[in-house]
Write a protein that binds this DNA or RNA. Sequence first.
DNA 1: TTGAAAGCGCTAACAG
DNA 2: CTGTTAGCGCTTTCAA
Lengths: 347, 347
Amino acid sequence: MTGLREERRGSLRLQDVAEAAGVSIATASRSLSGASGVSESVAERVRDVARSLGYVANVHARSLAAGTSRSVGLVVHEIGDPYFSEIASGVLHVAAPAGLTVQICHSGRDPERELEQIRTLVASRVGAIIVAGSGFVDPAVQAGAKADLQAFRAHGGRVAVIGRHHLGVDAVLPDNRAGGRAVAEHLLGLGHRRIAVVTGSRMLTTVADRLAGVEEAVTAAGLRFADVPVVEAEFTRQGGKQAAEQIIAEHPDVTAVLALNDDMAIGVLSVLRSRGVPVPESVSVVGFDDVAVAQDLAPSLTTVRLPMVEMGEKALQLALADPSARPRRRRVGHELVVRDSTAPPPA
Amino acid sequence: MTGLREERRGSLRLQDVAEAAGVSIATASRSLSGASGVSESVAERVRDVARSLGYVANVHARSLAAGTSRSVGLVVHEIGDPYFSEIASGVLHVAAPAGLTVQICHSGRDPERELEQIRTLVASRVGAIIVAGSGFVDPAVQAGAKADLQAFRAHGGRVAVIGRHHLGVDAVLPDNRAGGRAVAEHLLGLGHRRIAVVTGSRMLTTVADRLAGVEEAVTAAGLRFADVPVVEAEFTRQGGKQAAEQIIAEHPDVTAVLALNDDMAIGVLSVLRSRGVPVPESVSVVGFDDVAVAQDLAPSLTTVRLPMVEMGEKALQLALADPSARPRRRRVGHELVVRDSTAPPPA
DNA sequence: TTGAAAGCGCTAACAG
DNA sequence: CTGTTAGCGCTTTCAA
């Protein structure tokens, strides 16, 4: 009785399809995988039978036998963060039509955990791994991840990263430096001279690059970057709030706050509003990323737009493209979006 | 030469660990899986060897042999939507410590696609499936999904859904109806009598439930629900904008807009602001969900808080708990959060 | 073009 | 407590 066995596992096997179609299991396999070497008539019949039976191949058996799987892994810092959820959205949008499943995991901005997640993905024999979080300034921090990723590639795995990493693989690179410069120039152009910068950990390359752009602009404007207060906190809304409190306490004379991501800028706006500081009349605020809500805040946030969804799409496309000998880089544009949170400094 | 084979696949097999530790492959397996029946000293040695070798078990081989996998599937409408990314965050937060990987897929609010995604997950032999996202009022629409989910359960799979009722499985249920009532009562309590409701498709149970709550409150206040304009559009920010335009055109006398999710409310606020309509002075606006940014909008949004992260956590916990004969329901609380977007109607 | 059969790496009886 | 061995369901040579 075949019934029993079906009940045990719950689904048909290729063999059931093969029997029903009156062919061997090998032919059935070839028919369904679209491999050549089967007469079209037979192949079609097998596919019909499979469909009518509702057969779905066991992914694990297939992956085990073939050594690869039709799935990709995505490592983000935190999926609840809009920056990453938009990237994830982009990844999913190109994965689905390609018949790929996506495994998402959190690194929590911790290199250790990131390495752990990468290992898990490697063990899952995913076909590609996309690392979406910021890299770390210190290459040593990611040495482990780099080694694992290289080994993964050496065995046919595909890898792409978003943002600057020292990982030696294909990368989608937003121009954080030019973006930082642009947004700083915007404030300087409005006449601001006492600007405070609110930032996440400088260990993150994203932060380092954006900050370098800011420094360029400040220096080019004839100011000393050393005189610009740079307040470091968590790269989150909460961190932005904390930094804002500190600025209000220690640098009450600033006329503009430049936050290195929108999340922090939102935190800054929140504190200023609760303190009754009018934005942009008394203080201008800018962010970076242009997450979807930036335009709906009040005042709407001046920021630098990064095409997160597109970055996710590009990353997966890059990973899926024919492998290249040396790492490819896809730069994505940025765009200064001037909204209502900035104005000339108070007279 | 073992070297070759290692190169072919790229990683060590259990056998390599077993040899290095001088035990049989079975003992090695037991040691690593933490199964009983191995002396602790041997088990420890095996684990040490495995760790020093950097061994990671092949997930597919394991799943194939064991018939189950340490992974869960999560179906959301759209991961870029904050409502779902917060739920996903909750799911990931309980999955990771449990050693579970999470596969996320998009249904795009389309029952067909949803069914397709569920099938893919079943084929992946995930241990559990979590369906987040509203169900459909018409049970027939989801008959396919229900059948597949039941079959999946019958074969040992775990299932939990968030916020839907026609699937006959464990569910985490936000009290949409009571929430709708609460937020409508808030508006009525402030003295509003000309209220417009902005909603997504009424085919969604989420919408139907919230709307029913609103109707209860309106009726209890002695008004006729039929007199309340209900504008239907996409359940997104864009839909909210569209609905707002329509309300301004067709019902210029309303003093309050009740949007059935925050996303739509944000769209409404955006349109009102660009039209120069002061909120809450001329028109009050309320939303539903309390996505993270709701408190940072200006005016900050009065809404009903749903604990999305917690809902994600609970759903996975439910799915992971010992299976029960009949569907369990975990109700999660809601909380009216009064902020700055509501006030009494203009005199 | 088709089929038989040897694994893919691991788990889980079943022996010892 | 430990080892032997038969699969898990599929892909892929190798023959026919």
